[in-house]
């Protein structure tokens, strides 16, 4: 029998707890494929966040540490500094990375820590039940913005990829989407590139993935995909924001 398709070595057999229509699973797979293809799995340590991906350590076939809210980049920094031979990646959501973990995120990027961050932006706090995130869209209804996000009161959503691409320290910053096969192919390219830069000891890397949350958005999976396309993508433009080859940030 000929194998046509199989699960990456870097994923376990465990069935994920993610909701139907959620794209966490896709992003997990892209990370796992990248680790396999680059031959990094056996020396990789993942850092799990607090959020929907808190149990990511059950799904990845790598060593894992579980962080407190927002502190993943600090754990990765500590581990990478004392064991530079390891490959460190953090897997974080928007509340974790862009709210409570903003300081850790920006400073890890600014120090040029040789770590990779997979940043899943679904414009909402998922696990805690759909509260407003720093990335929640203007007017978006959440459990803590029942009348929709009021930008006069809460400010505009934070564009993390753009914020981090302002930093002068060489880094690789990209934003991708994973709601269509074409986007998934492009996203894979960016995620793999991010790990490649780390494996070469070159720079900090972060890939922001626009993701869906049908459960908390109150939509069907199909509607969610449309919402990413029509509401999120115009505000969160995709693309490689910065590469380590550029002299200075935009």
């Amino acid at each position: 029998m000929r194998t046509i398709f199989e699960k990456p070595d870097a994923l376990t057999d465990k069935i994920t707890h993610y909701c139907p229509g959620c794209t966490h699973g896709v992003i997990h797979r892209l990370v796992a494929e990248s680790l396999d293809e680059l031959g990094l799995r056996e020396r990789t340590v993942g850092i799990a966040p607090v959020g929907c991906a808190v149990l990511a350590y059950h799904y990845f076939n790598t060593d894992f540490q579980e962080a407190a809210h927002g502190r993943a980049a600090a754990l990765a920094t500590g581990a990478k500094r004392v064991r530079p031979d390891l490959i460190l990646f953090t897997y974080q959501g928007d509340g974790d990375l862009a709210s409570i973990g903003m300081a850790e995120t920006i400073h890890a990027c600014n120090r040029g820590e040789k770590i990779t961050t997979i940043f899943v932006n679904n414009a909402v706090y998922g696990m805690t039940g759909g509260q407003m995130a720093p990335t929640t869209m203007p007017g978006q209804v959440t459990t803590t913005s029942p009348a929709g996000r009021d930008v006069a009161e809460c400010g505009q959503p934070i564009r993390m990829a753009e914020v981090l691409s302002q930093i002068k320290t060489p880094g690789y910053i990209a934003r991708v989407a994973v709601h269509t096969p074409a986007h998934i192919v492009k996203a894979k390219r960016c995620i793999k590139q991010a790990f490649k830069y780390q494996a070469e000891g070159r720079c900090y890397s972060l890939v922001e993935c626009l993701s869906t949350c049908p459960t908390n958005w109150g939509m069907t999976p199909i509607e969610s995909i449309k919402w990413v396309e029509e509401t999120m993508m115009p505000y969160y433009p995709l693309g490689v924001k910065r590469t380590p080859d550029e002299g200075e940030g935009g």
């Binding site: 962080a67 407190a68 600090a74 581990a79 004392v82 850790e104």
Partner: peptide
């Protein structure tokens, strides 16, 4: 050795976490 001035004591305590979990005295 490794010397790093962290961005806050909060971050530092988790740098200890990461380093200790990676097997080193810290």
């Amino acid at each position: 050795g490794t010397f790093l001035q962290g961005e806050s004591e909060v971050a530092v305590s988790y740098m200890l976490f990461g380093a200790s979990a990676a097997g080193e005295r810290v």
